[in-house]
Design a binder for these strands. Structure first.
Lengths: 313, 313
DNA sequence: GCTATTATGCTCATTGTGAGTATATCTACC
DNA sequence: GGTAGATATACTCACAATGAGCATAATAGC
């Protein structure tokens, strides 16, 4: 086995938001009817792709017919046996994961836009504390904490669980998506974590599975995007040129999975100089709302413009 | 050329802070006397390294005799011709870069701890606006802006330069290390950017070169570390168990490259619950200072504990 | 003209931030 | 044993930002 028995794959979490629901593009991994959805991915073609970015954009265009705008590298995964093909003596597979944002859902054959929260239902708290956390996860965490050997271990587990899921007095932090996923995985609550030999128990936790470790990658992407919202105006990559403040708010809420105070949101966004009115207004429903556009100049005025979240949760 | 003509290399920016000076570990790249320093790096050994992390830790121990504590993946670089070996028909080289923090400088043969700012002198503003920016960089940026074709182009360049280097009214943002490096590179002010055939002009800008794109990697690492300071208590990875508030402040200042208001720093750190007094005190110089320790509980109390920077700069 | 619905304006208490002034307690040195 | 130099710590004040409300305005559908 030489040092180049490595295959490099680029995987993309491609995000669009429609009807206040963040969605990611998935493909059926094989022709089986029961096949799990997977992220679009393509091998790095070193003969043709001068840069990783270009490679990514190329196969996304080829495979899904989508021209992505904003692209950002997430993480490189390379642990052994992430991919079942490695077990059969195949090459080590290295996945470079990307986050991509597109303004509109562009349909294409074989691909489907699934709600992001279908795979991570505990992340959506827009209608109150997500029931899954209180109903299924919190009790499981309690058992896990109690099951620790020493008292020091118990405290460590309690801290980790508390921080990740906002138990007790700890506030819920939307950004800790990956902490939560990894904890759930470790507890065996994630379907993908259960080995085939453990039988076919039905899923304990709601939330659709994905192939390989694609759900972890989807969680990384959500974590990164939520984090970035607070200091970079990336949301505008998902919006049309002009929009109402409510549209903007609903979008931020959808991505963070929490509700926000309307008047304060307006204040932050207007006074913070993130947007400017256009004079035109949108008619739909009640009183017409002013149409706003993103104010690029804000980048020169404030070091880290974005959408902070309430500190207490 | 098959799809596995790829070599995967792990590269590490290993950081320690001594005498209020952040330093990174470098190696002489070859036996030549004029050889540039480079980051420690090692090939991924797929036969032995089960995970990327383990691989990294293994060769850092082997090569430099250092056991690193905190480790974090930074970015994967894979553009063609990053590495000169690729020009001679060698394999494509993929570098996975890491940031590692160690509490003390651990010496080892062949390795040297250089001040981080030796390679990025414009990043250190602790003694006022770094002279390099006003003296060399700002004029070069002005010329570059004026040299744009259209007025729209000029505005774009002015915005980019202003945001990166805090010109005009824009505040200096310590986090934008990478923006600055890339802009300087594009302007040809970074030595590594000048091709051999352009002659051997002496360096325009102070700041030591490194091999390949290692200086860019060092810049990425500084960017990431500065960013992380504001929401994760990573500084404590660089401090001993107990420390005075001044030590802590000097450390944060050293990493961010800016000075901070002493009394306010105390307030934030104490009232924010990041540290707690030990009762013991340190005797050195003037009035003895209380020794503090990191308060882990803060993780449960506040969602993103860290060291924010003044908003205006 | 009424109701439902969304938009927008304004207030208020509380907390956080940037910038000072003032005072305390050590060491070193004369 | 007194003073200069250095550092630590306490306290104040104006102002900005935040979280939470109440109140009012403008539309559509009936």
């Amino acid at each position: 086995m030489g040092p180049s028995d490595i295959e490099v794959v680029l995987e993309a979490v491609i995000v669009a938001v429609t009807d206040n629901e963040p969605r990611i593009l998935t493909l059926r991994s094989s022709s089986h009817d029961d096949a799990l959805p997977g992220l679009p991915s393509g091998a790095l073609d070193i003969a043709h792709d001068r840069t990783l970015d270009r490679g990514l954009r190329r196969w996304i265009r080829d495979q899904a017919g989508i021209d992505v705008g904003y692209v950002e590298q997430l993480y490189t995964f390379g642990d052994r046996f992430r991919h079942p093909a490695e077990r059969d003596g195949g090459p080590r597979i290295l996945s470079i994961a990307y986050l991509a944002l597109v303004r509109e859902e562009q349909t294409s054959a074989g691909a489907a836009w699934w709600p992001w929260y279908r795979f991570l239902p505990w992340e959506d708290h827009r209608d109150g504390k997500a029931g899954v956390v209180a109903g299924v996860i919190a009790p499981a965490l309690k058992t896990w904490i109690a099951g620790a050997e020493s008292e020091a271990d118990q405290n460590q587990r309690a801290e980790r669980a508390g921080v990740a899921f906002g138990l007790d007095e700890t506030p819920w932090d939307p950004v800790r998506v990956l902490d939560r996923y990894e904890l759930l995985y470790q507890l065996g609550l994630i379907d993908e974590a259960r080995r085939a030999d453990e039988g076919e128990s039905s899923p304990i936790l709601p939330g659709g599975s994905m192939v390989f470790d694609h759900r972890r990658i989807a969680a990384s992407a959500l974590s990164r995007l939520r984090g970035k919202l607070s200091y970079r105006p990336v949301v505008f990559e998902l919006l049309p040129e002009t929009f109402t403040l409510l549209t903007l708010q609903k979008l931020v809420e959808a991505l963070n999975g929490v509700r926000l105070h309307k008047q304060n949101f307006r204040r932050v966004v207007e006074r913070g100089g993130l947007v400017e009115g256009t004079g035109r207004r949108s008619h739909s429903g009640g009183r017409p709302a002013e149409l706003y556009r993103f104010r690029r100049e804000v980048l020169r005025e404030r070091p880290r413009p974005g959408f902070g979240l309430p500190a207490r949760g």
